[in-house]
Amino acid sequence: MKEEFKQYIASYLKLFPHSSLEELEILRTQLIIKEFDKKDFFFSSGEIQRNMGYVCEGLLRRYYINEKGNKITTGFVRENQYATDYPAFIRQKPTKYFMECLEPSIIIELSYENIQEGYKKFKNNEKYGRLTAEYVLTVQTDRVESFLFENAEQRYLNFIDRNPDLINRISLTHLSSYLGIERQSLSRIRNKIAKK
C-alpha cells in the first residue's frame, strides 16, 4: 500500500477507530491516487466534478472569473483537506469554480458513485459525509461573515492566525484577491502591522 493510501486510511481511522476490515478494504480498492503539476487543474468551471479529492501533498486555490474577467480567489486547499465545490459535487451539477494547483500535488480521489454506495452500506461513511458537509459549511459561513463583520485588516490577521503555514506558500496577489482588497492595500496593512 502506498504511503498516500496509508495517510488517508490513518485520517479515516482517527474519526472511525472501530471500522471493519471489510469497510477499509472496500475503501482502499476504490481510492485513486493522482499526481498534478503546478498550474494543473483538479477541475474547471463548467465541469461536473465526478471525484472528491483529498490532498495528501500540495496546495490548490479555488477561484471564479467575474464579469470583468478578473480571477477572484475564494479559498485555498492544502494537505489533509478536501478539494471540492461541495454543493455542486453533491448535486452533480457543473461547477462555477476552477481548482488550480499552486504547487505539485498528490490527490486521492473517490468517485461520487462509490461515496453514495458507501453511504448505503456503512454507517461510518454516512457520518464521514456529514462531517465533511459540516466542515465545508463552516468554512463557507466563516468566509461570508468575515466580509460582513470584519474590516480588511481583521480579515488579514484572522487569515494569518488560522493559516500560519500558508503565508509563505501563496502570492500576495492571490491573498489580496481572497481578502477582497487591492494588492496595494494589503501591502499597506502588512507594513502597518510590521511597525507595531
Rank of each mutant, 00 (worst) to 15 (best):
S11T: 15
R143M: 04
P87N: 04
Y12W: 09
Q154H: 12
K192C: 02
D161R: 15
S111D: 00
K39M: 11
E126C: 06
N168C: 08
K196M: 12
E113H: 05
P164H: 05
Y128D: 12
R190K: 12
L186C: 01
R91C: 10
Y156A: 00
A10N: 15
Q81N: 15
K39Y: 14
E47G: 00
R130Q: 01
I193K: 02
Y64C: 01
K195F: 13
N125F: 13
I181E: 03
L31C: 02
F5E: 12
Y178H: 06
Y112E: 00
G75P: 14
S11F: 12
S105C: 09
A88H: 11
S44W: 08
F122R: 01
I90Y: 03
S187V: 09
E47W: 05
Q49V: 14
L179Y: 08
S171Q: 04
G118I: 06
G69L: 01
I189L: 01
E150Q: 15
Q92W: 04
E103L: 08
E47K: 04
E47A: 00
R28C: 12
K68F: 14
E100V: 06
N191R: 14
I193C: 00
N151R: 10
K195A: 10
A83C: 11
S45R: 07
V55W: 05
P17F: 00
S187G: 05
I115Q: 04
L27G: 03
S146Y: 10
E109S: 11
A152D: 09
R155K: 10
L59A: 02
G53Q: 07
K39D: 15
P87E: 02
K96C: 07
E182G: 10
L175I: 00
E4M: 06
R188C: 04
S105Y: 06
E35I: 11
S176R: 03
I9N: 02
A194I: 11
Y119W: 08
E113Y: 13
N70T: 13
R155L: 03
F43L: 02
I32S: 04
I115L: 06
I48M: 00
L13A: 03
D37T: 10
T132F: 13
I90F: 04
F149Q: 09
K127F: 11
A152C: 08
K39G: 05
E150K: 15
K2W: 10
F42Y: 15
F76C: 01
D85H: 09
E126W: 12
K38Q: 14
N51R: 11
P17T: 00
R62A: 12
L102Q: 05
K195I: 12
R50D: 04
L27P: 09
P164C: 03
L21S: 15
G53C: 07
L27W: 05
L137I: 13
R143W: 07
A194Y: 12
D37F: 12
L137R: 11
I115R: 06
E47S: 00
S176Q: 01
C56W: 12
I115A: 01
G69K: 03
Q49K: 11
I90T: 07
F41H: 09
G53V: 10
L110S: 01
A133C: 01
E79S: 06
F36P: 05
L137S: 14
F147W: 10
Y112S: 00
I181W: 07
F149M: 11
S20H: 08
E4D: 06
R155S: 04
Q92Y: 06
I33L: 14
L27K: 07
R91S: 12
Y86F: 15
T84H: 10
E25P: 09
E67T: 14
A194K: 14
E103T: 10
R62S: 11
C56G: 08
K127N: 05
L166Q: 01
